[in-house]
Design a protein around this nucleic acid. Structure first.
Lengths: 221, 221, 221, 221
DNA sequence: CATGAATGAGACTTCATTCAT
DNA sequence: AATGAATGAAGTCTCATTCAT
């Protein structure tokens, strides 16, 4: 009779409603009672599915990030060559963030919470996705170098940086109240990364030195 | 006898100790009593200088960001030409973040708090620094284009993106437990932005299209 | 098992215990913890039934005054003629106050609180009972005039004054540490009001003038 | 140079300003800082003249009541015969209350505070004035009986009751937001007390019994 | 399984009072 | 004498969590 007929489905239900509440109020201002009301269940029922508020919060983040990884994986697998795979990542990231624009502050809340809680699971979960993205990025970068599209670049360093770029654009977008088009920003990012800004003349002067740096990456010494 | 002999100095004292506590515990887990203990003053004394916990939190952020802006302004002013000014920004950002590595989580905490509080002062304060950085970045970018170092690029769009890049790298650094050298990352960022990753052959194919995108920026339609 | 098995009964319980505490300590010196202890419940439980301390205080007063009005109404209805109804009011007032002698200071506390709080509900509640008593008094006075027991007197003015007399006697009784018999005082009051103090000779001199004043009441000019 | 050049005068100053603040806010909501501001002195200065907030409060009440007693004493002494002395009391009471209408709630606050504080001085001070009034009233009543104006009445009982009547009218006046003319109410009171309400016929029936009660007063059995 | 009444630890904030200047 | 910065005890109210039904 209810929308969710088994434990797992109901768990998903709660996560969905909790995500809404957490998004709007942040972790500390979200009350278990409010989440229960949103999910139209009793306050005690939440505790049948999650031991603590923190565990629920983690589950919400986990659901978001798993969705994110899955969307990207699907799109990347569907793309034929490295170049289209890169586009696939960019497009799925943009679409994903935009489709959940209302919940975007949640991500910041997770990051902040992960840094302040004693519970190591939060940082672990964050790094799971970060590692997924960095490895995927490094793999594609290597492919693009191998295919002759890219100059030699330290793939791991670049992937780390690039995932930072993405998060940074997303962060700007959120702090600026989503006032600029996210897709355009990601496209511009790609143009910059691809072409660089230097003029022909400047490039002639600096090329050698900069190529060395790209190849070396950010490794210590 | 006391370290601080006047109201203003004592206020700074409290801000300094509060910054430590907020950094370690986050906003909600930081207790006024704990801050008072750290500053070795009575709990009530804090309220002689700050009306609420939130006001103190804002003052801590304001102090941080004001310092940041001042450091950058000084270094930029001391630099002679646009190219060294760009380096000055990069260097002062890196040094500033590194010198306060322990308080880095504070920034995330502010961002998260700003997005959920009803108090508009938080977002306003954040945007003050963001605007400062974007305008400085746009100005320098225009100079570099005018000087022939850069190809034509929409300066405001690029500055927005670049400040996002910086925040993103900083974010990565914090979430990765500061496990990579921040200066190397910023240097690599600069190489990428300058030279781009495309190989000579790929560049020939894509140059025209990408240059158009750089000139256009992220403006809508 | 518990003394109160439903929400409403438990609410009444809390009101009863709160009345005790408020009576003994006054509003400000009564602590929620103390009331909770008296009622043998958790501090938080009070807040399940009353949103604030003030709301609880109002509920205590409301319960007292509702009881008071009900007692009087019952007794007045049971009395046959106007004269016995007047006695009924006097008797029920005296008995009511005496039966709750220990809580008498509460009334003063309400009056004082009502005059200083911003919450208009307090004065409204006070005036509800005052209006009830004044209207009842005016009605009976008119009946007694009509029945020839009383000379012509402005019924509303007299009722206002008489309810003031009652409160005044009660006030004296409380401030004098309840050191005189309340019933005797009310009886004496009734004798004075009925017969007046003037001697036969004085009456002859003053009767006409005073009767005019009684008929006129306290209306302006 | 200052308005008050000696300790005693400054003490009076503080009392005056404190009376204003206490009147407006009540005891608990009046803050020492606020009183200091009103008196345009430093917070600590109040403590040069009063040991505690309660002592200041008591001093305010004492000043009020001393003024009250003095006004009445002066007017009563100026009156020639017992009958005019009675009028003098009534008039000075009415005028005094009206001249300080804004501070009227203060009296209630005192009464309430006296009943709840452990400090016995409050009730003692209240009873000082009450005794003054009751003794004065009893003396005048005896005079009026002796002079043949009044029937035989227990003077002490009547004086007790009558001072209760006065307080009761004052109370009504305050709780009804001073919406009726106080002088008219006191005049009506006097008419009732003098003449009584009973009609000629009723009086014939009840006279004997009521006169016995008046003579007996409220003494216990 | 589901619930929601009960709980009490704990936080922020207030403010009377002190005391060094 | 006058001040006001400093204090910390104390109070109201919140809310995650429990558990009997």
């Amino acid at each position: 009779m209810p929308a969710s007929v088994n434990k797992s489905a109901k768990r998903q239900d709660i996560i969905r409603y909790a995500a809404d509440v957490f998004s709007k109020k942040g972790y500390n201002e979200s009350k278990m009672q409010e989440i229960a009301n949103a999910a139209d269940i009793g306050k005690g029922t939440i505790y049948e599915y999650f031991r603590t508020k923190e565990e629920l919060f983690l589950a919400v983040y986990d659901a978001w990030m798993s969705d994110y990884e899955n969307v990207i994986t699907d799109r990347v697998n569907a793309a034929q060559d490295a170049l289209s795979k890169v586009d696939a990542i960019r497009d799925s990231a943009v679409e994903f963030y935009q489709s959940r624009a209302g919940q975007a502050p949640l991500i910041l809340e997770f990051w902040a919470h992960a840094l302040r809680t004693d519970n190591p699971l939060f940082l672990e979960r964050i790094n799971k996705t970060r590692t997924f993205l960095k490895e995927l990025g490094a793999r594609l970068t290597s492919d693009l170098v191998a295919a002759g599209w890219f100059n030699k670049v330290d793939a791991k360093s670049f992937a780390l940086l690039e995932s930072g770029f993405s998060d940074g654009i997303f962060l700007s977008w959120v702090l600026d109240a989503q006032s600029f088009p996210l897709d355009k920003a990601f496209t511009l990012r790609q143009s910059i990364i691809g072409l660089g800004l230097l003029s022909r003349q400047a490039r002639e002067v600096l090329q050698e030195r900069l190529e060395a740096k790209l190849a070396k990456g950010i490794k210590t010494s």
